[in-house]
Computed example of a mutant assay.
Amino acid sequence: MRALAIGIDIGGTGIKGGLVDVISGELVGERVRIATPAGGEPEDIARVVADVIDELHAPAHVPVGICFPSSIRHGITMLAANISQRWIGFEAEKFFEEQLGRNIHFVNDADAAGYAEVVYGAAKDQEGLVIMTTLGTGIGGAMIYNGVLIPNAELGHLELDGFDAEKRASGVVREREGLSYPEWATRLQRYYSHLEMLFSPELFIVGGGVSKSYEKFLPLLDLRTPIVPAQLFNKAGIMGAARLAYDLA
Rank of each mutant, 00 (worst) to 15 (best):
E91Y: 05
N108C: 07
R102T: 06
N82R: 05
F96T: 01
S71L: 11
K94I: 12
R73G: 03
E98W: 03
A80T: 08
S70M: 06
I72H: 02
I88V: 15
I104N: 06
S71Q: 14
F96N: 00
T77N: 01
E93H: 06
V107S: 08
H74I: 13
I83H: 00
F68T: 01
F95Q: 02
S84K: 05
L79V: 04
G101A: 12
T77Y: 02
R86A: 10
R86C: 03
L100Y: 06
N108F: 03
S84R: 03
H74T: 15
R102L: 13
G75Q: 10
I72C: 05
I88Y: 05
A80Q: 01
I104A: 10
F68A: 01
M78H: 04
G101N: 11
E93V: 05
Q99V: 11
R73M: 09
G101T: 09
F96L: 15
I88K: 11
S71M: 12
S84T: 11
N82A: 11
H105C: 14
H105V: 03
E97P: 04
D109M: 03
W87Q: 00
F90E: 02
A92W: 00
I72Q: 02
F106A: 14
G89D: 07
K94T: 13
F106C: 14
Q85P: 06
P69T: 02
F106S: 05
Q85L: 11
D109V: 05
R73E: 15
H105S: 14
P69S: 09
G75L: 07
P69K: 01
E97C: 08
F90N: 04
I72L: 08
E98Y: 05
R86W: 07
A92H: 01
M78G: 04
F68Y: 07
H105G: 01
N82H: 12
I88E: 11
N82F: 06
N103H: 15
T77W: 03
I88P: 00
I83R: 01
F68V: 01
I83F: 04
N103S: 15
I76G: 01
F90S: 08
P69N: 06
E97Y: 04
H105E: 13
M78A: 11
E93N: 09
A92I: 07
G101I: 06
F95W: 08
G89A: 09
A80K: 03
L100A: 04
E93A: 04
E98T: 03
L79E: 07
N103W: 12
V107F: 04
E97L: 07
A80H: 00
Q85R: 13
F106E: 06
Q85V: 13
Q99D: 11
A81F: 09
E91H: 14
N82T: 05
I72W: 00
D109I: 02
S84N: 08
N103R: 15
Q99E: 15
V107C: 09
S84C: 10
